[in-house]
């Protein structure tokens, strides 16, 4: 086979580039806490009422002696529950775990301008943990087409300082 020496060199460099990309993804994953969601659990989308998703909202939990929060979100046509009618309110600098699923069709769950971005698939629970570093409001966007009023589906996440966090709105 006739391969020009420049081309041989280029192919070697290409392999190097590929290795570099994969290495930086692994580095980010392990060392910088930049992760993606994996498999968590399946759920019957037609009977969410019997699960925690039946009373969606923010819950307080204690894990390893630390106060953390869990947020159960239902994405429905065409709203985030909670998130659309009232914002999801969570404290800053605290671990927050979202559990997201859908009773009807596919939706997206994107906290605009951040790395929190996941699909909400009927029958599957998306589980992700994050820490909001600053107190501010974030826009919540459905970024997967979910039907004729898809463009109306939006919401808000309100991150408040730990000291100002009102625990009376928590779901028991």
């Amino acid at each position: 086979m006739h391969i020009h020496k420049f081309e041989r060199f280029w192919i070697k460099l290409s392999f190097g580039l590929i290795a570099f990309f994969i290495a930086s993804v692994i580095y980010g994953f392990v060392a910088m806490d930049l992760k993606v969601i994996g498999d968590y659990q399946t759920i019957d989308p037609q009977n969410l009422g019997e699960t925690e998703f039946g009373t969606p909202g923010v819950r307080k939990v204690t894990k390893n002696g630390q106060t953390e929060y869990e947020v159960y979100v239902q994405t429905i046509q065409f709203a985030f529950q909670p998130g659309t009618a009232r914002p999801i309110t969570v404290p800053a600098n605290t671990r927050v775990t979202f559990y997201i699923t859908s009773p009807d069709v596919l939706h997206g769950f994107e906290v605009a301008g951040t790395n929190i971005n996941t699909m909400s698939i009927p029958g599957q629970v998306a589980k992700l943990t994050t820490i909001f570093p600053e107190s501010r409001e974030y826009g919540l966007v459905c970024n997967e087409y979910c039907g004729p009023a898809h463009h109306i589906m939006e919401g808000k996440i309100k991150v408040v300082p730990k000291s100002e966090f009102d625990k009376s709105n928590l779901v028991q």
């Binding site: 910088m32 930049l34 992760k35 906290v111 790395n115 943990t129 994050t130 820490i131």
Partner: peptide, 26 residues
Amino acid sequence: YLGLVVLMWLFMYFVEFGGNAPSIIE
């Protein structure tokens, strides 16, 4: 092209993405 791609990857990955918290940490 290779040099440009590597520089832009470093920028996108470590500055745009790495500095775009909150991220999924678990």
